[in-house]
């Protein structure tokens, strides 16, 4: 299943915008002084009349995005996750979520793989912040192919969404003929001993962990929970019933993130043990992405360890 080519989901987003913009003239793209980093520069070059450079003012960008959306457009607005979800949170809540504006917030540089920029730029809270907003969908794609497929689906829907995209290159876990549906988790590997529910860049390590567990005689089911909201409760309940144990894996705080979301479902519908791999209530620091993932416990080995702890 795996394709060796690695590409960051922010790159996939940039390519998607240029392709989608060709036959969707009502798409407006906004960026807050980071068009090279969040990859909106390709769209800017291709369709300069439909690109808005907001400068370093994320709050203004997102409030304006609501105004543009309520004038009949679909708006893709981009900044780093820290600023789009964090700094502008209350704007996103009142101007976008509450008014149900057709704004797709495409936030790049989520998580610890921002790397050397350090703690001020490493977001572990964005999924939690966006997940509590009524109307807001929250989507964390795992690779290039799923980014394109999920964006193509979501940009055709009315209403707000938050896409969490990464800086670091990741391998494809999907193939071009994979079918993805927003709100439906995808089972990437079958198994009934433990279920690993992962999102974003942790999906590939989850598959690696399943291989390791297989060698030890443990068959792990691997689920890509690309849509954190609306959450696929059925697939979680089924995993809890059939596997009895769940490991969640995310590049985000386990508080309020995928781990918290899965535990909310199991606690209410099918109690089972849940071990959470992710950031555990601490800030990050500067370092290389791989070093940081190791230090803060977000690797395939950590998933294996968590699975065996249950």
């Amino acid at each position: 299943m795996a394709d060796v080519k690695k590409i960051a989901t922010r790159e996939s987003y940039g390519k998607f915008l240029v392709e989608y913009g060709a036959d969707h003239e009502n798409l407006i793209v906004m960026s807050a002084d980071l068009s090279g980093s969040n990859k909106t520069d390709g769209f800017e070059k291709a369709y300069p009349d439909r690109f808005v450079e907001s400068g370093i003012s994320e709050q203004d960008m997102l409030a304006e995005a609501a105004g543009i959306a309520h004038s009949g457009h679909v708006v893709a607005a981009s900044s780093f996750a820290m600023f789009a979800a964090g700094r502008a949170f209350e704007i996103v809540r009142n101007s976008i979520a509450h008014t149900n504006a057709n704004v797709k917030i495409c936030a790049t540089h989520g998580g610890i793989t921002v790397g050397e920029d350090g703690a001020t730029h490493q977001t572990f809270e964005d999924v939690a912040l966006m997940r509590v907003l009524p109307n807001m969908k929250v989507i964390v794609p795992a690779d290039d192919i799923s980014t394109k497929k999920l964006m193509t689906a979501e940009f055709g829907e009315e209403g707000p969404a938050y896409f969490r995209l990464g800086r670091a290159a990741v391998p494809n876990v999907y193939t071009e003929d994979s079918v993805l549906e927003i709100g439906k988790g995808a089972v990437l590997r079958e198994g009934n001993d433990v279920a690993i529910i992962a999102s974003g860049i942790m999906v590939a390590p989850a598959l690696e962990a399943a291989e390791t567990l297989h060698a030890d005689g443990i068959e792990a089911r691997v689920i890509d929970m690309h849509t954190i909201k609306p959450l696929d409760e059925d697939i979680i309940v089924k995993a809890a019933e059939e596997c009895g144990k769940i490991v969640t894996a995310e590049e985000h705080s386990v508080i309020g993130g995928l781990g918290g979301a899965v535990a909310e479902v199991t606690a209410q519908k099918c109690p089972c043990r849940v071990a959470m791999v992710g950031q555990h209530d601490v800030f990050g620091e500067s370092g290389k992405p791989a070093e940081l993932l190791k230090k803060y416990g977000m690797t395939a080995e950590d998933i294996v360890k968590a699975a065996k702890s249950l």
Binding site: A63, E64, G67, I68, H70, S95, T99
Partner: peptide, 30 residues
């Protein structure tokens, strides 16, 4: 805006309506 006819934008959190309006005028320009 979704409840009262004639209300073009939901407001109340100060400052946001001003920025929303800039977005609306910008959309009309584009």
């Amino acid at each position: 805006m979704h409840k009262c006819p004639g209300v073009e934008m939901s407001t109340g959190s100060l400052g946001q309506g001003f920025s929303n309006a800039v977005g609306m005028a910008l959309a009309d320009k584009m």
